[in-house]
């Protein structure tokens, strides 16, 4: 949570797309930007890149006003996946309310996936966040590619963690909204438990989730 201003009746929420380099975090955000209805959706900010590789972060902001007048700004970030940008990852991770971990489904990428996940765990503890309490969704991306590990294998490895698993192809648009909706809902639940968003500020979960994930057209 970036900001909570009770008087101004405003909450600023942070979601972060994390994962190894080139797993498709930026592509996820591009896809969301394309799919989501532009009402309440801000412009996608793609900060400086080098050869299309994220060096700072990308940001897709969304804005929601509850019937009660309570306002929620939802900011969806990506981190740079390259190992050398660890300081940036940590900086972006601060005060996150939810994480989508974008894993690369390609065979031979399981090592880097695991490394990146370990890096996430480490950085979360460095910025004072508890991975066991933070909403977390695992997305296995690039399912459209031929040489990928099977869904059974993914389930076998990640199933025991109990974390929500989403199969996706951000390039083709599959599984992107699903992962996004799940993390939005989980983050809302976590914030509601802390701030009583529904009880005290009249923010309904269903309305919030559907509003910030309404698709265009």
């Amino acid at each position: 949570m970036i900001e909570f201003d009770e008087q101004a009746k405003k909450l600023v929420v942070k979601l972060v797309y994390y994962g190894p380099a080139l797993s498709g975090k930026t592509t996820n955000l591009l896809c969301l930007h394309d799919q989501l209805c532009n009402e309440g959706r801000g412009d996608l900010m793609v900060l400086d890149t080098v050869d299309d590789r994220t060096i700072f972060f990308d940001l897709l902001p969304l804005f929601y006003v509850a019937p009660s007048g309570f306002r929620i700004k939802l900011k969806v970030f990506t981190v740079p996946g390259q190992v050398r940008h660890d300081a940036t990852r940590k900086a972006v991770l601060q005060r996150a309310d939810g994480i989508v971990f974008v894993a690369d489904s390609q065979k031979g990428k399981m090592g880097t996936n695991a490394e990146s996940f370990a890096n996430l765990e480490n950085n979360l503890s460095m910025v004072g966040l508890d991975i066991d309490k933070l909403p977390l969704v695992i997305q296995f991306n690039k399912r459209d590619l031929p040489d990928i590990i099977s869904e059974d294998e993914v389930n076998a490895t990640w199933g025991p963690t109990g974390l929500p698993l989403v199969m996706a192809s951000s390039l083709q648009g599959a599984g992107v909204l699903e992962a996004y909706r799940r993390i939005v809902a989980l983050a809302f639940d976590a914030l509601d438990a802390r701030l009583e968003l529904t009880a005290r500020y009249g923010v309904e979960r269903a309305d919030f989730v559907s509003s910030v994930s309404r698709i265009s057209g």
Binding site: M45, L47, D48, F56, F57, L59, A87, T88, K90, Q94
Partner: peptide, 19 residues
């Protein structure tokens, strides 16, 4: 939007440098 990008970049930069 340009100003926003500039601010975000310098924010990120400052945070990272400080960190």
């Amino acid at each position: 939007n340009g100003a926003m990008k500039r601010m975000l970049t310098s924010e990120a930069h400052t945070t990272i440098v400080n960190q």
